[in-house]
Design a protein around this nucleic acid. Structure first.
Lengths: 348, 348
DNA sequence: AGGCGAGTTGTGAACGCCCACATCGTAGCA
DNA sequence: TGCTACGATGTGGGCGTTCACAACTCGCCT
């Protein structure tokens, strides 16, 4: 009843180099040359092979190729809480550059911030034979040296690593952004500035936090209370309430990112405090919504697209030339003034 | 000067099955069995092998394995504008489930909405020997049948496909959410409801749009003007301004997602219109910030985590049993009432 | 005591491709 | 004319696994 030829047809066997070769009447090596754009192939042969490839719908088998060449033409990204705006942006932008360069992308994320999780993610990704990996590693407290060890000789570049670490890395200069904020606030006449920071285990949060305090101090201003929160609007809301409870004098509130700023503004308003008349608020990131907050948010824009680009460019360099000296490429954020900041009122 | 053994050490050759076998004094096949958890291996042998594996830091070579087995243990995601909240959420959630199941993840995105781009992405991803792919395909106008053809016999499930398409798919019932919105609005007494929709090339946008009109009509209400926008706050802002310019009576504004709602609210307010006193506004998605908008946004929550989960579960089923009948799994969104909606005022 | 089966281990052959080298032809040059 | 050199093609081997078998060792049943 069943045609014996029927069974194999269930899974359409994909054409191989040999199939194409046979179809074109050449050897598989010649086909391989055509596929890989090797120069010395006669024009007529090439076109015959191409026709055969087309006819058979041949596609090279990546696994076989990478087995033979020991390169996979895909790079990995280990991401971190890609739910947040920054990391998500990086991922997308890196992906698009990578695609342009002809690389595939393998992605894995780190569930929690523990060192163990980081290690697990790295070891997981590193036996996936990749040509290199980009690591979005915003966490402080993870020893960069030991991570480098985990990677062995696999090329990798890190994003968001603390300045000064001796690894290939790309970063946005957080301090630069914070300084602009402080300058702006001080110029407006603010002397009482409080802070809601991101989780201090994140390098960026910590750097923003520390720069804020030092810059303020340098301007002869005693930093007001600072509350650590969690990057979310809900967290910012709660933090602002706690801040209000301290009854500390405060005419300006520097918040670690835009989402928290949104929550904070809501809390202030709930307490009958006007923004910016009573208290100025600043954010960080310049998410696309920030301009439509009420009031439109003064914030610091980070160019994640450029970041992704730099990242990939750096990584491909390292892949080609493993001896590339380790350095950090740093990008500068831009300060965006909108309406959530103003001169402090007399009272306060 | 140079020790001849030095050169090879530049690239530390990774241990292979053979190396481990030799080290443990067994055959490579036995090692393979241990690695793959095959049952019939003597306890003592197993432990000897394990020791050798540990000592040599052996890691199986994925390329070789997938060459031999014809399965790669990685699944692909072709994403779509992962900059937006929904798609980004899906990606992250799918990734985490996938990891739990032991799959790797390859990711590619479609730059623009053209059919050509979709085809390119699919063909790109399909010669990357994957076990299956999840396609986030929110675009209308892309012929589902032809996509299925492109995939050939590779298992795939689609997200956000129009209801009724004969492919494996998972979706959130948009109509259900819209109906809840309308019901709510009508119960409050609104009779003049306008709309700002997402780009109608997106299935979700279109379905929300059409359901809104039909539901309104079913309630005996003539739908007010509808303006198509682009999912962003900026777009929502502009759309609302255009809407105001029409001077159409409007006590309720149904917006296609939360970001646009934010922009719209800002535009209304700029025009001296109060929300919700003068105009009620609703969103869609329930992004984490929505509760902190001013006013807190009444919206429809989509559970992207569950979506990702269903997706992966479905896909792995299809991989195991390719004959799985095609169907659509649909999840239901929940309606969240906050403060951006209220009874219409007398005037209008 | 012979034999049968379960448990354990090893062997040969793919998987589809690239690399290094060998081979052939032919054009260029003395 | 004979030699060289290079362009075009083919051949053998190997990348690290898994799969289908074969082979061996026991213990236990008849």
């Amino acid at each position: 009843m069943a045609d014996p030829t029927e069974r194999p047809s269930r899974k359409v066997k994909r054409a191989t180099l040999d199939d194409v070769a046979q179809c074109a009447g050449v050897s598989y090596q010649t086909v391989s040359r055509v596929v890989n754009g090797h120069p010395s192939v006669a024009v007529v042969t090439r076109s015959r092979v191409l026709a055969a490839i087309d006819k058979l719908g041949y596609r090279p088998n990546r696994a076989a190729r990478s087995l033979a060449t020991r390169r996979s033409n895909t790079i990995g990204i280990v991401g971190f809480d890609t739910r947040y705006y920054g990391p998500a942006q990086m991922l997308v932008n890196i992906e698009s550059v990578l695609k342009r360069e002809g690389y595939g992308l393998a992605f894995t994320s780190i569930d929690d911030g523990t060192v163990a999780a980081v290690q697990r993610a790295i070891s997981e990704i590193s036996n996936q034979d990749l040509d290199g990996v980009v690591m979005i590693a915003p966490l402080a407290g993870v020893d960069v040296e030991s991570i480098a060890d985990l990677f062995g000789d696999m090329p990798f570049v890190m994003i968001d690593v603390k300045p000064g670490e001796a690894v290939h890395s790309v970063a946005i200069d957080q301090a630069h952004g914070v300084r602009a904020v402080v300058q702006h606030l001080v110029a407006l006449g603010h002397r009482n500035v409080c802070e809601i920071s991101g989780p201090l285990r994140w390098n960026d949060a910590r750097e923003r936090h520390e720069t804020l305090r030092s810059t303020l101090a340098a301007a002869g201003i005693e930093p007001g209370p600072s509350i650590e929160s969690d990057w979310t609007a809900a967290g910012g809301f709660a933090a602002a309430q706690r801040l209000l409870a301290t009854r500390a004098p405060c005419t300006a509130l520097v918040v670690g990112n835009d989402q928290m700023a949104l929550g904070a503004i809501r809390a202030l308003r709930d307490a009958g405090i006007r923004v910016p008349e009573d208290v100025s608020v600043t954010g960080f990131d310049d998410i696309p919504e920030a301009a439509y907050f009420d009031p439109p948010l003064t914030t610091v824009r980070q160019d994640f697209e450029a970041l992704g680009q730099q990242c990939v460019e750096y990584l491909t360099n390292v892949i080609k030339a493993p001896q590339t000296p380790r350095h950090q490429r740093v990008l500068y954020p831009t300060f965006v003034v909108r309406s959530s900041t103003a001169e402090p009122s007399q009272a306060s």
